[in-house]
Computed example of a mutant assay.
Amino acid sequence: MKHPNIVTFISSFQERGLLYIVMEYCDGGDLMKKIQMQRGKLFTEDKILFWFVQICLGLKHIHDRKILHRDIKAQNIFLAQGDLKVKLGDFGIAKRLNNTLELARSCVGTPYYLSPEICDNKPYNNKTDMWSLGCVLYELCTLRHPFEACGLRQLVVCICRGRYAPPPGHYSPRLRQLIGQLFKVPPRDRPSINTLLKLPLLQSCIKQHLNTQVLEEEFSHTVLHSDRENRRPPPGPQCRAPEKERPPREEIKDPHKVGLYNHGNIPAQQHPVSQQQQHQHQHHLHGDQQQHLLTPEPYQLVAAAREEYLRRRDDANRYKLRAEKQLGSRGLMVIGRWF
């Protein structure tokens, strides 16, 4: 994957039974180290948005290719060119989905950044990356984790409830509202990365980080599919062959009298039809009518299913009454023998 906001893979090699991966060097370290260096001094909102938009652009690149990162955290976001360029890295546990509706099931990630669906051991999709993205944004605003607890069990409870301390009030309402949208507990309520980048708060910053060519490539689609589908011409009027004009057909009132060859405005008597052809045509029509009669309508299927259900329920009730009578008679026999 080649993108300005993703750490570039250079090469890999094996030596003494170990696999070495050579990646792009980021001279600014990771984002967690940058947060720790602040020593309680909060970032400005402009600085936060400057970094956050670049993280979103890198995440959009992989989500458009149906790839889940599954371990988005401040330690996996790197700074280059001082702190002007932000790059998403460490795809060690990333997963590629077969389609946009597929759900992953394995429980992976760093505990502080786990989404509620992973904590509940439920299937998840790219919305789990959006939850982790919200954790990173919260850390940039507060310099601490949004969900903290003494143990893992308490941490899971806090995450599943989605309760966190509000960010500082000097940040704009739109930024604080953005954090709330990313921390929606139901995954369907969280915005996708493409929806997020359409917000006015972020759109004004996008052109600062991508040149015109990359910008057109990244925003000319939402999801990339297979090469076969990319080569397929888009459906439209230009793909259809021109249709020839045909004379209007005369309505057939009696198919048995007109026959099979009465097309257009040509009279029926100009097309001699043998008795054998008429017999085959009549047999074909009767066969279609019989097939149509044999095919049940939907309401007939529903009615038949209901009748079957009622019949089985009555049989079950009769069996129950018969069993209760037998048990009752046996109970009376036991009581009589006892006395």
Rank of each mutant, 00 (worst) to 15 (best):
V22C: 14
L321I: 08
V302Y: 04
M23G: 03
Q276M: 05
P123T: 09
F91Y: 09
V334R: 15
I72G: 03
Q36K: 13
G169M: 08
E250N: 11
R174T: 10
V7N: 10
H283P: 00
R318C: 10
L201C: 06
H3R: 07
I67H: 04
G58S: 10
H63S: 05
A241H: 03
P167N: 01
T8F: 01
F9E: 11
P186T: 06
N230L: 15
D314W: 05
Q280I: 02
L321C: 02
C239N: 08
I118L: 14
P123H: 04
P167G: 08
D227H: 07
Q269L: 09
P233E: 13
S12F: 12
S220E: 10
R144E: 15
L321Y: 08
N230T: 12
L133V: 11
N125H: 07
C158Y: 01
F219C: 06
L18Y: 06
R16F: 08
P4Q: 03
E216C: 08
E218Y: 00
N194D: 13
S11G: 04
S226Q: 08
I93D: 12
I193D: 07
R163V: 14
P111G: 03
V214I: 12
V108I: 13
Y299K: 04
L114V: 12
H3M: 06
L101W: 03
H292L: 14
R312T: 07
L79Y: 00
G109F: 04
M333W: 07
L202D: 05
I62R: 03
P186Y: 02
E324Y: 00
K34Y: 14
H221Y: 10
G264S: 09
R65W: 03
P116G: 12
E229M: 15
A74N: 05
F43G: 05
L49C: 08
G82C: 03
E297I: 00
S329W: 03
H69W: 04
D315H: 10
K198H: 11
Q291G: 02
A323H: 08
L49T: 09
L101N: 13
